[in-house]
Design a binder for these strands. Structure first.
Lengths: 742, 742
DNA sequence: GGGAATATTCCC
DNA sequence: GGGAATATTCCC
């Protein structure tokens, strides 16, 4: 601001004069200047007010008089240091650009600018052009309104370029083509030397072309316009440049020209997430806030974006992010698939548990009924045997070592006999609660007295439950492992038989079954069971045994095991390996798992459903992330994602991919060590019909795929507009501030 | 290239002369030029060769003679169009910058440049400076080697700034401070007008300051240097700028000055991932390839980075990515938590299934034992009755409507009686395979003849299995719903009793039990069971009934139901609500789930483990992604992530958060409609010890937290160096190409 | 002092 | 024609 005396222009060749003067300081181009104001160092660097002048609130001449310009300059930047105010003023001084002289070569020179005055006579020039001019003008009006709402300008470069073509003095170097839909640079060298520096800070034609390309101008190859005289061409090769929105007489179309960021202005597929291309921004600027909801299905991220204080992300970083995103998504799909499988299996398992519980209940009912029946029936015959004259004495006699008291807890109706014969080894050390006596479900019936043909067996030691200490209220009678002392055995037993005849029956039966084959039963079986015990043929016996042991019964007599005829090893002590039932070892470990109740199962089902919802949300998130990142890929799709759905799980996930592997297995209920074939049953192995279970069912293995895949192939406009929204909400503020002082 | 005649300089005030001349074309500043070459439009725009000249391969004068410069210019850009070659040549013409005259105010003017000749006498100036000068020089040497390895230059702005200070002619406007560690601009206006355009494309002091700031220069506030004479200050306020690496006599320190991208050069915490700050780049340039492995634990992304064809990522995009990352991670944590729960519940379920299987096995054993016993016992008494003289005839007499043949399929040892009394409604329509007769597991014992006190019941219709058509090979005897015709009932039954006494016994028992209370049993119970049937007191009977019905048996006689004494409703038809067993409705639905076998369970376990592995990998991915994105956050941490671990699941996930809710439930095995209290048992509900199950166990709910949280709080150098690595691998190529033609 | 948009240069 | 680095401007 002070000392405005212009520096003397150094004489040519003065570089050699001062030894300190480096040669690179040569200044060869002297741009034409119209005013000698020394403070205005460079011209044309800011023509932002150009379009405001050409808008609807300016005189048809669109040019400010010098006093008006002075006013313009007076609105300097407040609060800046004098030194920076220098630059500011210099820039403000250059705000006004030639906004008259539009359409120099036409008659409608003064009628442009006002929207209502768009010259119609221009349409004869542009009728066959790539778009209907009316459509373009309509789009331009929308774009203008939108841009002005955002306080955005026509890009300065476009304004400058247009001002070149307004000036009739420039027509020897740059001018409109005959049709007015492109412009021609007749002499690139001279244009660069003389005209470019008028409005740009360089004299570099290449930079000018670079800017042209940046704003969507393309060079026309075959100079279709032959209007040029050969003299005009000189020996220079003229260049013609075209932009669909750069037309003579249609300054409003310039509002459709936007800098297309990094993505080229090619097709609408790979739009930049910034402010939309010039080609289609009025189509993509809608959808402001709705996408945010889609973006944040979960509440924690619904808050406003954290202030993004980060620097520019490098493309390599983006590629990395994209790669990781792919990985994430693939794994998400895999997880979702497996969760589905898991859900189905869990469902089956829960159903199976119910089934087993069911069977168990019915078994107990049946056994209870049997024992009740027997208690009724046997009261008389047993007493008739004369050994005792009531049931209590009978039982005391026939099972001499029966000294087990029936405690208060014994409220069940099915007797556990498994431990009577074999006082088994201690409980498994793995038991979490080894204390106290525990209730047991029906144990296996001791079978050492009955040499079954097929009974590989194992030791029968039903372990205690690991859980609740409360005795169950059901009908299962529990016994203690160690007989608690109750000395008065006979009476007690008799009382017990009266109060618990089922247990008494079981004891009698056990004794009979155990000793029948050996002939040393405590019960007088011949008298009790009458003398028909030998009326069974050997074949009948064998068949019965075979039935009991689960073997086929119709292949006649099998002499391997006889029932009544003193079988081998009758006097020998029971072999541990064959004494117990087959299930004890399993039970021992199985008891380590407290059975969850049905509510828990339902809860688990809920959890799985929730799990899947989470997975879906996550897939959506990744989807949207890739929508965001996808446009940065030239093809608009993430490599490897949409190649094929089947290649998704090539990486060590084959295990989970075969949906039939599950059912190809033999579905025997083979519990590993379970040895008693008689208890094996063949479960039905057909797969479940997958229709409705639990309401929240989802076949998301494929559904997630379907959800994600299309977005890779063509990033949804949602993703782009999500980002557009940000610009929309952000830019007005910035632009407003920028504009404030203009 | 052609028509090199310089444009005439327009006369002052010519703006008004030409009407087409816009006023913004004023050109007020006339930079001093040393050569009149009209092709050299602008000066000083490229001084890249400056440091090469000041390096070790140049004469001490560091300045090229005009012929040398001509050579320099001759190395033009090949293969460019003439028009662009114009610009190229113009730029190449300006390559050489004054590289002599370093340390103008010192005596060691000619000794700089060569590394071995770094002047030591300068250390007296810099001894108290912020760093030891030797340390700085050492770092500068490393930085120089690294930069040159990458074909990088000292930033052009720094070169230009340095060249200002080299020129003695500029000392009235810009010069070193006395200590030589900062420089002073004495007259900002004049400096902007006269000196700035010599090397820059503007005369804007603010832009100059902007560049200073970009390269880490800071203004010194209290002009500590009082060396300036008052006359030198004039009335301008001089400005002093400081950069730790900008020192008189230490040109190599300039290698430490790098443009600090967007992140300011503040502390080392928020380093840009680009090329490292000037402050600490020698520390962060290591770690090239190792991070890539960490980044891609999964094979699919191990391939080389895809060509990053994307544009600059906006900060809003980054913020979005970061937000989505947060969402992903939170959901990941939730999913992991639930997978853990799922795993535990699946474990319990599998254990429960085994437990049920166990109970089933024991029941079967018990039943088999009972029936064996009965077969032994009843042979004689039945024949003694005289009704028939063998067992077969007996059964034919006592159960007249017993016409069920025992088919070939009946190989089990336990008889299913449930449907004998009630020919039940057809099977559920929901059955997937309603055809044929199906095997059934043990049904509940029919109880309508026994008025149980507590039997809410439901109809007993065990549905068929939905699965395999093969009859099970186990010990469960199956019966058909519809009795197949076998007219010769007595004989057939008799044969069957011989071959399958257990079934026969069950039938007898059922008949007796059903009709005992009504007194119309087909079996002559008084004769069979002797006359002791009334020897039970009412109390005994009631207690027995209570036992059967699951009630407490020790509260004495309960007159509500009597067994033998003609109970109420004895002649009435059985009430449907109380006839069947309680479990049928459940079984009907439960049967829809074919029980999976153990291999399936193991497979499920495997899948859960795999699931968790995937989760872990995914967490790692997100972790690394956040490492990448984390540095873009100023605090280095993602907001909301490390606030607290407990707030992770505030959003509707409370359901899954309470680890005790699971066990707080009553764990009764209450199967909804299961009505027979007698079959309820109390499962043990202690939680499982979580140690090793399935080998791949993980407590990842918390583990993932632990893994991720530190990375949020302080982004690991890995993340930053990961990105640095990209620049390192990428930049040499670019720089090399750029340099190729210089 | 610095963020961000635009401009210019360099290079492919 | 366009990617990318650097420069310049504008604004906070």
């Amino acid at each position: 601001m002070s000392s405005p005396n212009p520096r003397k222009r150094p004489a040519q060749g003065s570089a050699a004069a001062a030894s300190a003067m480096p040669q690179h300081q040569q200044q060869t181009y002297y741009p034409p200047t119209s005013t000698p104001d020394p403070l205005n160092g460079w011209n044309g660097s800011n023509v932002n007010s150009f379009m405001e002048n050409s808008g609807n609130n300016l005189s048809p001449y669109g040019m400010l008089s010098p006093p008006a310009q002075a006013q313009y300059n007076a609105s300097g930047t407040p609060g800046t240091t004098p030194s920076t105010a220098l630059a500011r003023r210099g820039n403000n001084n250059q705000l006004v650009v030639t906004s008259h002289n539009f359409n120099t070569q036409q008659n409608d020179v003064w009628s442009y600018g006002d929207e209502s005055l768009v010259p119609q006579q221009n349409s004869n020039n542009t009728g066959e052009e790539h778009d209907n001019i009316e459509v373009l003008e309509e789009r331009a009006q929308r774009a203008k309104r939108e841009s002005q709402a955002k306080r955005k300008q026509i890009p300065p470069f476009v304004q400058k370029l247009n001002s070149f073509l307004e000036e009739s003095k420039n027509t020897e170097l740059i001018r409109w083509s005959e049709k007015g839909d492109s412009f021609i640079v007749l002499d690139e060298d001279e244009f660069a030397k003389t005209l470019i520096p008028e409005l740009f800070k360089h004299n570099n034609y290449a930079s000018f072309v670079r800017q042209l390309n940046m704003y969507g101008f393309h060079k026309k190859v075959g100079l279709s316009d032959n209007s040029m005289k050969a003299s005009e061409r000189k020996n220079k090769s003229p260049s013609e440049y075209y932009n669909p929105y750069f037309r003579r007489g249609h300054p409003n179309l310039l509002w459709l020209i936007n800098k297309p960021k990094s993505g080229n202005a090619k097709k609408k597929s790979s739009k930049r997430p910034d402010e939309g291309d010039g080609d289609s921004d009025e189509d993509g600027v809608v959808l402001d806030e709705s996408v945010n909801q889609t973006f944040t299905p979960q509440a924690p991220s619904t808050r406003a974006l954290p202030a993004p204080e980060s620097g520019p992300l490098q493309k390599k970083d983006l590629a990395l992010v994209r790669d990781q995103m792919q990985n994430l998504q693939q794994q998400q799909a895999a997880i979702a698939m497996q969760i589905t499988r898991l859900q189905g299996q869990h469902r089956q398992l829960a159903g199976q548990a119910k089934l087993f519980q069911d069977m168990h209940n019915r078994h107990e009912n049946s056994i209870n009924a049997i024992l009740t029946f027997l208690a009724n029936v046997f009261r008389k015959p047993l007493e008739e045997q004369g050994v005792v004259n009531n049931v209590n004495d009978l039982f005391a006699g026939i099972i001499p070592n029966l000294n087990m008291p029936l405690g208060q807890q014994q409220q069940g109706s099915v007797v556990d006999l498994s431990d009577w014969e074999q006082q088994q080894p201690p409980q498994s050390a793995a038991m979490s609660t080894p204390a106290k006596s525990r209730p047991r479900l029906l144990p296996s019936f001791p079978q050492q007295g009955v040499p079954l043909k097929r009974s590989p067996s194992a030791s029968a030691t039903p372990p205690p439950y690991a859980g609740s200490q409360q005795p169950p209220m059901g009908t299962v009678t529990e016994l203690f492992d160690q007989p608690t002392d109750a000395a008065n055995t006979p009476t007690y037993l008799g009382q017990n038989f009266q109060s618990n005849p089922q247990e008494g029956m079981m004891r009698i039966m056990q004794d009979v079954n155990t000793n029948a084959g050996k002939g040393n039963s405590s019960v007088d079986l011949p008298n009790l069971g009458a003398n028909a015990s030998n009326s069974m043929t050997d074949d009948q016996r064998n068949r019965m045994l075979s039935l009991i042991s689960g073997a086929q019964s119709n292949n006649g007599s099998s002499p391997t095991a006889t029932y009544n005829n003193h079988p081998q090893g009758s006097a020998s002590p029971p072999v541990p390996a064959s004494t117990g039932s087959a299930i004890s070892p399993i039970l021992r470990s199985a008891a380590a798992f407290p059975p969850p109740n049905v509510q828990e199962m339902a809860r688990t089902q809920e959890e799985i459903d929730q799990l899947q919802k989470l997975q879906e949300e996550q897939s959506q998130h990744i989807d949207q992330l890739q929508n965001m990142l996808g446009p940065y890929s030239p093809s608009g799709k993430i490599p490897g994602i949409d190649d094929s759905n089947t290649s998704y799980f090539d990486e060590g996930m084959d295990f989970f991919l075969d949906p039939n592997a599950f059912h190809n297995e033999t579905n025997d209920f083979d519990f590993g060590n379970a040895t008693n074939d008689a208890v094996n049953f063949d479960p039905l192995t057909e797969p479940l019909p997958t229709h409705d279970f639990g309401g929240g069912g989802l076949n998301e293995g494929s559904r997630i795929m379907e959800t994600n895949t299309p977005s890779h192939k063509s990033p949804s406009p949602n993703g782009t507009e999500e980002i557009l929204r940000d610009d929309l909400t952000d830019s007005p503020g910035r632009a407003h501030k920028r504009q404030r002082k203009g």
